[in-house]
Simulated scan of single mutants.
Amino acid sequence: MAVTQVADRQVDLSVRSTALGGRTVHVRLLPTAGTRTTGATGSHWPTLWLLHGCCGDYTSWTSMTDVAETDSLRDVLA
């Protein structure tokens, strides 16, 4: 898995997905304050999954909305 910090609260991940036939897919993670993005196995957080739909990609929610700056989502892993 590749991890790239792209902004204060945005981390891009490249993840191999067995559900997608072994393809590598890209996802954008919006960690909560104090969340470690590596080596955190066994940890659990409240999570909100945002799927981009037919015409976007993994960057759509952060490029087209203010989800990363929404105060009520600061304690939710998105």
Rank of each mutant, 00 (worst) to 15 (best):
S17A: 12
L51E: 01
A2K: 13
E69Q: 10
T70E: 14
G21A: 06
D66N: 11
S72C: 12
L77K: 01
V6Y: 08
G56N: 04
L50E: 04
T62Y: 14
P31N: 13
W61Q: 06
T70R: 14
G39P: 08
T41H: 09
S60N: 03
D75N: 12
C54M: 03
R9Q: 04
T35S: 13
R28L: 09
V67R: 05
T62S: 13
R16H: 09
Q5K: 13
G53N: 04
L20R: 15
V27N: 01
H52W: 09
G53A: 04
C54Q: 02
R23K: 07
T32V: 15
A7L: 08
R36Y: 00
W45R: 14
G22C: 04
G21Q: 04
L20K: 10
T59N: 09
M64V: 00
L73I: 03
M1Y: 13
W49Q: 03
R28G: 02
A78Q: 04
T32K: 03
T47F: 14
V6L: 14
L30F: 02
D57M: 10
V11F: 05
V25N: 04
L50Y: 06
E69Y: 03
T38A: 07
T38S: 08
C54I: 00
G42W: 10
T18A: 06
R28Q: 09
H44M: 07
S17R: 06
V15C: 00
G56K: 05
V3Q: 03
W61V: 06
V15G: 08
R28W: 01
W61I: 05
T38Q: 09
G34I: 11
D8P: 12
C55G: 12
L29M: 13
L13F: 13
W61A: 15
V11L: 09
T65I: 06
T41S: 13
V76K: 01
T65W: 09
T65D: 01
P31C: 11
G53V: 01
R74S: 14
W45S: 10
R9W: 02
D12I: 11
L30N: 03
W49V: 15
S60L: 09
V67P: 06
A78E: 00
Q10W: 01
L20E: 14
G22R: 08
D66F: 02
A19M: 12
S14M: 14
G56P: 01
L48V: 15
V3A: 02
L13A: 11
G21C: 09
C54E: 00
R74H: 05
T37D: 11
L48H: 08
G39F: 07
R16I: 10
V6E: 15
A68Q: 05
L50K: 02
C55P: 00
T4S: 14
L30H: 05
T38G: 02
T41P: 01
A19P: 00
S60F: 04
A68E: 07
W61F: 14
L77S: 10
R36I: 00
L73D: 00
T35R: 14
W49G: 08
A33P: 00
L51A: 12
D57E: 10
T65E: 00
T24G: 03
S14V: 15
C55E: 07
V6W: 01
L51D: 05
D71E: 11
T32I: 08
T41M: 08
G56T: 07
L29F: 06
H26N: 06
T35L: 14
R16A: 13
T32A: 11
T35Y: 11
G56Q: 08
